[in-house]
Design a protein around this nucleic acid. Structure first.
Lengths: 124, 124
DNA sequence: TTACCATATTACTGATTGGTAATATTGTCA
DNA sequence: TGACAATATTACCAATCAGTAATATGGTAA
C-alpha cells in the first residue's frame, strides 16, 4: 500500500478512457487497502455480518493492536464503518463492491490454479 | 504493495471460506500489483491491445527505466506477457480478469463520487 | 567489425508501512 | 469515587518500494 497523497508524475492530464490521473490514483489506493493479507482476513471475518474488535481478534488470530490499526486503515478508506455500543465497537463492511471484488479475484486465482494444473495434465 | 514472500501470522490454517492463508496472501499480492498508479496507467495503455516499451513510454509519459521496471512487476505476477520482435518488445494483458477488475473498481469509484455529490445536493 | 537503437538492470535514496509493546482513552459497574 | 474491560494510540524498527541516473544487454544495419 502507499498512502502518499498523490504523487503522480502527470498530475492533471486526462487519459483516453476519461479517467484523470487523480482518479487513477484513487483506484490504486483502494487496491492498496486490499493488498494486505491481514486486512483481507478482517474483511472475510466481516463477510457474514458485523463484529466487534474482540471477536475479530479471536476469529483472525491477530493481535489486538494490529486489528485496531488495520480496521483504522479500512475505515479511513470507507471500506468499513463502525458504531460504538457501550464498551464495544462494532464494525461492518460499508462498501458494497468489496464482496464482488474479492469474489472476482478469488475466482481468478482459482481459475489460474486449475489452469496451471492443466499444464501438468497435458503431458503426464 | 508488498512482495514479502508469505509472512502470514497464521501460516497454514484454513479459513471458514475454504481459502488458505496462503491463497489469501496470493489475492493480496495481486491487489498489491494493482495498487500503484503507474502500473494501472500501463495496463490502461494496454487496454486496446499490445504495445512496445517505447509506445508505452510515450503514451504514459513515464521514464523508460520506470516503464521497464513496472512492466517487470506486472509480468512477474502474470498480469502481462511479452514477446521480443527484433529490437522491440511487445507487451499485452495476459490475465483476463484484469479488465473486469478495473471496470468494477472504476464503477465503484464513480458511484462513490456521485453518492458524495448527492450528499451536497440534498441540502442546497 | 562499429555504430546505433530499444530495452533491461543496477545501485541508490527518500519515504512508507506492518507488526508490536507499552500506554492512553473511553465506557461500565459497583 | 475506583476497578475493570474494550478499544485506540504512540513510538519504534525492520523491511519494502517507487522512481531515477547511469550502465549493461541484445538486436539490427552498414
Amino acid at each position: 500500500m502507499n498512502l502518499r497523497p498523490i504523487r503522480s508524475q502527470r498530475p492533471h492530464t486526462r487519459t483516453r478512457s476519461g479517467m484523470t490521473d487523480a482518479q487513477m490514483d484513487a483506484v490504486a489506493g483502494l487496491f492498496g487497502v486490499l493488498s494486505e493479507g491481514s486486512r483481507l482476513r478482517l474483511l472475510q471475518a466481516l463477510h457474514d455480518g458485523p463484529a466487534n474488535v474482540s471477536e475479530l481478534v479471536r476469529s483472525t488470530g491477530m493481535k489486538q493492536a494490529n486489528v485496531s490499526k488495520q480496521l483504522g486503515v479500512l475505515q479511513g478508506a470507507g471500506v468499513v464503518a463502525r458504531e460504538r455500543i457501550g464498551n464495544e465497537v462494532n464494525y461492518w463492511i460499508e462498501m458494497p463492491i468489496i464482496r464482488k471484488l474479492c469474489d472476482l479475484v478469488c475466482t481468478g486465482i482459482a481459475q489460474q490454479a486449475s489452469a496451471r494444473a492443466d499444464v501438468f495434465k497435458r503431458r503426464p
